[in-house]
Design a protein around this nucleic acid. Structure first.
Length: 481
RNA sequence: CGGGGUGUGGCUCAGGUGGUAGAGCGCCUGGUUCGGGACCAGGAGGUCGCAAGUUCAAGUCUUGUCACUCCGACCA
């Protein structure tokens, strides 16, 4: 028993060493393995299954709002990448280049896409001619490569999976509407499915996407109080359209430039999922995103009738829930720990005692609570339990986050809060990039976003927390991943 | 890119001053078990990250290099 305990405790305590805890969970839950390529991870079945769930739900939301999927090439000729000045400047330092095909040196080197704006723009220039061709609402699921200096599983890898939506519209209003519509979809997805509360807002000019006119973001707070940018939605105006010559004839036969957007969410969100909900026993997954919702564990399965009863229960539940029945000869205790480590939201135990009493034991992953459920009408009880787990995870995360958003009026208290209190600080900002720089230098905190005033974030004063000059922007500040 | 740490069976690690490679867990076979990581017996499995060098002899010493990890800088 004592030595077995050691196995259970092989996850580093979250409060003791958050970074090590994170790595332990990711590896022990078998989400990823390290590969022989620096900064690139193997997404193992348990990890990829989460991504597949994310894809399925998000893709459904995209389709419902009229988007269609395409696949763009993974290579971008250097000359194409160069077309939009801010864009290339932003990404050039971190692109991977292909210089040879077989033994022959290429006349023009190809970059491995770090993002696909240029490819979409090139294509749009060819296929958009009339206002009747608009809007174009394209999305693609793919992986991209950025030559990162330091990497961590999910949070920052050299190759990562994501979706990138790229749309073209007749005018600024429509493009802006689309930008915010996608921010809404990401918000809904994070809060309703991942049970991660987010703060919505706009990035400051310093933090916005290379080539964008405006960048909107949803920011989540991790269990250690640090921020993680969970998705972004960019409004491009007609900047890319002018660089790539994407024009159409409008209703009055006048040539117009399109207005564009792009938006993305990546496998990084899985890092958020882990850092928001998981605990010292391993991964915790919200039922609505968990690839497997229930682990059904027969107790004393060699005894007469146990396996049969477990099979019958499985048949009863598997149409409505994703479930695995583990009838392997591992000990029950081993299985309990294993499925806790893997984050399965609900465990059902079925043994001789339960069969005799016509019930089974349910154990919640979020609270550890054990509940006896009558087998009669168990579908409904399980559905309610899963819903309650989903809601509880969201509530817990939101309560913790809300308790860790502080307001600062002056620079001294601002610095003190950032240094001493994990979490976010709300403070006024004058709009000067120099103040952002100074704050970053003094505290390592960055501006996460300018939250929407209509969503409960009204100005807390009229002076910049850094320089004291007149300020009309409330900014959420925090240390970020 | 700077600073710290670590590379030895699948995993976690032990191997003072150089001298034929070890443990626990896991894995395989058989048996007994089964309500919080079970037990017994037998068995398989390692060019010690990689490359040079010193030496009669290198897991151990020297140099280089690669990877992982943590903390910064940079970026998502």
């Amino acid at each position: 028993m004592a030595k077995n305990k050691k196995l259970v405790e092989s996850i580093t305590s979250r409060d003791e060493d958050f970074a090590q805890w994170y790595t332990d969970v990711v590896v022990k839950a078998e989400l990823i393995d390290y590969s022989s390529v620096r900064g690139c991870m193997v997404l193992r079945p348990a990890g990829y299954a989460i991504w597949e769930r994310i894809q399925k739900v998000l893709d459904g939301m995209f389709k419902k709002t009229g988007h269609v999927n395409v696949a763009m090439p993974m290579f971008i000729p250097e000359s194409l990448l160069q077309k939009e000045k801010d864009h290339v400047e932003g990404f050039a330092p971190e692109v991977a280049w292909v210089t040879h095909g077989g033994d022959e040196e290429l006349t023009e080197r190809l970059c491995v896409r770090p993002t696909s704006e240029t490819l979409f723009c090139e294509h749009y220039a060819k296929i958009i001619h009339s206002y009747r061709d608009l809007p174009k609402l394209y999305n693609q699921w793919c992986s991209v490569v950025r030559w990162e200096k330091s990497t961590r599983p999910f949070l920052r890898t050299m190759e990562f999976y994501w979706q990138e939506g790229h749309t073209a519209h007749e005018n600024a209003e429509e493009a802006m509407e689309e930008t915010l519509r996608m921010l809404d979809i990401y918000t809904e997805f994070c809060e309703d499915y991942l049970a991660i509360p987010v703060i919505r807002g706009e990035k400051t000019p310093k933090e916005k996407f290379a080539g964008a006119e405006r960048t909107f973001t949803i920011e989540a707070q991790m269990h250690d109080g640090k921020a993680l940018q969970s998705a972004t939605s960019h409004y491009f105006g007609d900047g890319f359209a002018k660089a790539f010559d994407i024009q159409y004839s409008d209703r009055d036969n006048q040539l117009q430039y399109v207005h564009q957007t792009s938006w993305g969410m990546s496998t990084r969100i899985i890092g958020a999922l882990i850092m928001v909900h998981s605990d010292d026993s391993g991964l915790v997954l919200p039922p609505k995103i968990a690839p497997t919702q229930i682990a059904l564990i027969p107790i004393a399965s060699h005894k007469e009738g146990v396996l049969e009863a477990a099979e019958a229960l499985k048949d009863k539940l598997e149409d409505r829930f994703t479930l695995i029945l583990d009838d392997s000869d591992k000990s029950p205790g081993w299985k309990f720990s294993e499925y806790e480590m893997k984050g399965i939201p609900l465990r059902l135990e079925l043994g001789p005692r339960d069969i005799k009493s016509g019930s089974c034991v349910a154990v919640r992953r979020d609270t550890g609570e054990k509940i006896s459920l009558p087998l009669e009408g168990i579908e409904k009880a399980v559905a309610e339990l899963l819903e309650d787990i989903q809601n509880n995870l969201y509530r817990q995360a939101k309560e913790l986050r809300d308790a860790r958003i502080y307001d600062a009026e002056d620079y001294e208290s601002f610095k003190k809060l950032i240094a001493e209190k994990p979490g976010f600080v709300r403070a006024m900002w004058c709009g000067d990039e120099a103040c952002e720089e100074k704050i970053k230098e003094d505290t390592t905190a960055t501006s996460r976003c300018i939250p929407f005033a209509a969503e409960g974030h009204e100005a807390t004063g009229d002076r910049c927390v850094c320089c004291g000059k007149k300020a009309d922007k409330l900014v959420i500040w925090g240390k970020a991943y």
